[in-house]
Design a protein around this nucleic acid. Structure first.
Ligand SMILES: [Mn+2]
Ligand SMILES: [Mn+2]
Ligand SMILES: [Zn+2]
Ligand SMILES: [Zn+2]
Lengths: 154, 154
DNA sequence: TTAGCTTTTAACAATAATTGTTAACTAATA
DNA sequence: TATTAGTTAACAATTATTGTTAAAAGCTAA
């Protein structure tokens, strides 16, 4: 993702305004490796900007996504997770106990579209999702939350 | 997934009943490699069993999931996709144009939890999702549907 | 500094996927 | 055939997300 400073240029140059809300969300995402959900970003943003609305957070996120500055990940944790790291190819570790998402920068050279057996399917990208248990959840007593939202827990 | 015949044994032995609805869904899943959604299974089931309800389809699917006979995949296509192939490790090709999901049985030996850089994260499984365009969508005029449900299209 | 135009907010509504609930009914199995 | 499990219909509810509207606020270029 571009820095908040760079985005400021970009927005001004394209007739969009650099509002406190946009700046706030941009800054919260800058260098953020926690893959926050919109809801989490909203809570964090509210600490700085008490009147910001969840609606606006969603708007700013989608706007960044459309600009290619951010991507939303569907990792089966209930809500979309937002990742400002769109430049470096990487993979993800998802804790099935608490839903935490971590980056993994290992190189998997063999993970390429196989040339055969694709029957004409043209592969554009490959993502690897590792599921397991994070260090905290491993050492905890199992009191942490589930990866699934309440209504979806079996 | 166990066969409908095997499931019949299992269900009878555990005090559950083998109903026409369960049998119907089981048979629709047996050997099914299309990764159907609950809705699609419902439509197919209705051809055989006109009175079956979507509610029941969901129930039967969840039941199979709890038994470990089926898994639900969250691939960013809107609805969960159900995969009766829980025994053979495999990966998936997802068409970003039409949402089709295909199996990929290539072996990726290098895709293992790296020993280092995990900071105590204990990896249980690794899934690779290849995204791209299926043969039909490549040769089509772009009249096909989007992978995202209407309300989520940007 | 100001006018104009973009954003934000609030306050709802709506959508989509999925599950919960209830009661009446149906059907599988011992 | 009696018992018990399962199904259905008909809704309600939930979660995540987007749509809508009008009023208010606030950037920014000039
Ligand atoms: Mn990431
Ligand atoms: Mn599969
Ligand atoms: Zn965890
Ligand atoms: Zn396709």
């Amino acid at each position: 993702m571009k820095t908040a400073v760079e985005l400021t240029q970009l927005f001004r140059n394209t007739g969009r305004k650099v509002t406190a809300q946009r700046l706030c969300v941009w800054r919260l995402l800058e260098g953020n490796t926690s893959h926050p959900s919109a809801e989490v970003l909203f809570e964090e943003a509210r600490r700085e900007l008490e009147t910001i609305s969840l609606r606006t957070v969603y708007q700013v996120l989608r706007e960044l996504e459309e600009l290619g500055e951010c991507m939303s990940l569907d990792l089966g944790t209930g809500a979309s997770r937002f990742d400002p790291n769109v430049d470096a190819a990487h993979h993800h570790l998802v804790c099935t106990a608490c839903g935490k998402v971590r980056d993994l920068y290992a190189d998997f050279p063999s993970v390429e579209a196989p040339k055969t057996g694709l029957d004409g399917f043209q592969v554009g990208s490959a993502e690897i999702v590792f599921r397991g248990t994070c260090a905290e959840c491993k050492s905890s007593t199992g009191l942490n939350g589930s990866i699934r939202p309440k209504a979806l827990v079996s």
